[in-house]
Design a protein around this nucleic acid. Sequence first.
DNA 1: TCAGTCATGACAACTAAGGTGTCATTATTT
DNA 2: AAATAATGACACCTTAGTTGTCATGACTGA
Lengths: 157, 157
Amino acid sequence: MSETDRGPVPAEPADRLIEVFDLVGPLYRRAQRKVEQEAPIEGLSVGVRAVLNMLREHGPMTVPQMGRAQALSRQFVQRMVNDATAQDLVGAVPNPAHKRSSLIRLTPRGRAAITAVIDRERAVLRQIDGELTEAEIAACVHVLSRLLRLLDDVDVD
Amino acid sequence: MSETDRGPVPAEPADRLIEVFDLVGPLYRRAQRKVEQEAPIEGLSVGVRAVLNMLREHGPMTVPQMGRAQALSRQFVQRMVNDATAQDLVGAVPNPAHKRSSLIRLTPRGRAAITAVIDRERAVLRQIDGELTEAEIAACVHVLSRLLRLLDDVDVD
DNA sequence: TCAGTCATGACAACTAAGGTGTCATTATTT
DNA sequence: AAATAATGACACCTTAGTTGTCATGACTGA
């Protein structure tokens, strides 16, 4: 119906990857909204949530590291870290590697908050556990990671 | 390093799905930025691009339909359609099914613009064609689709 | 058929995610 | 020691996307 005139298209891998991107958009937006609905309980903005989650799974990091890891500008992450600090969700500890840039790490309160959020999300995701195989999920992670690396040259700052 | 005290975690499927979401965020943002860098050539905002792309692969649709399809508010899509109309990228045709809500479809100019954009993206994606199998990509699409459906109850408007 | 409800388009106001530019300060590096 | 790069801080801005409201025209069901 939407084909112009050159007949059926072979649908090469690149096209299937475009399908992936077409899914990423709506998924991202829906997930954002879900987080917004849930997180207010803890009073977390999406940005703060992202920071806490990074610290949760990666351990203490510096602000610039987090920015690079999430493809966010250093300044934005800084603001989120400042917010989180004001709420006593994260704290700074001296960084042995870089004297200027301290390591940010979760406070007990921060850990409790992010754990609660993640647990609630896990509960939602468990609803579809049975329908997806481990292999499929692994493949998905793999494909997305590769795509991410492809776009990595997009540098911030 | 970030484990609190309850030892190694089994990493159930729900956790792997959280990994998926952790990838979706950065991927979405990087993709947005790439689009922003490319699209200015055609003068397309991200929203307009999304509309054109929907029409490209789905054929003519009404504004509310597009909103639902992309989990975007009706009003936002409307604005994008208005923008696109002003640029002569899309046009309205009478809708046999609903007399009030006309069908939006690509104009030749619109089709040319979105085709150019997609082709450029396809070229980028072809760089990694060889590294991902068809099966992996298919699995990825499957997983993302399922997740999308899970979050579907989030209704706009 | 007529009342009531529903869906659409239009417009306005708003929120928040996220970027950019700049400056002073402090680390690294050579 | 000088030059360069990285960090934090702050201000400003862009724009994606929502929400609210209203008038109007379209279905629907009694």
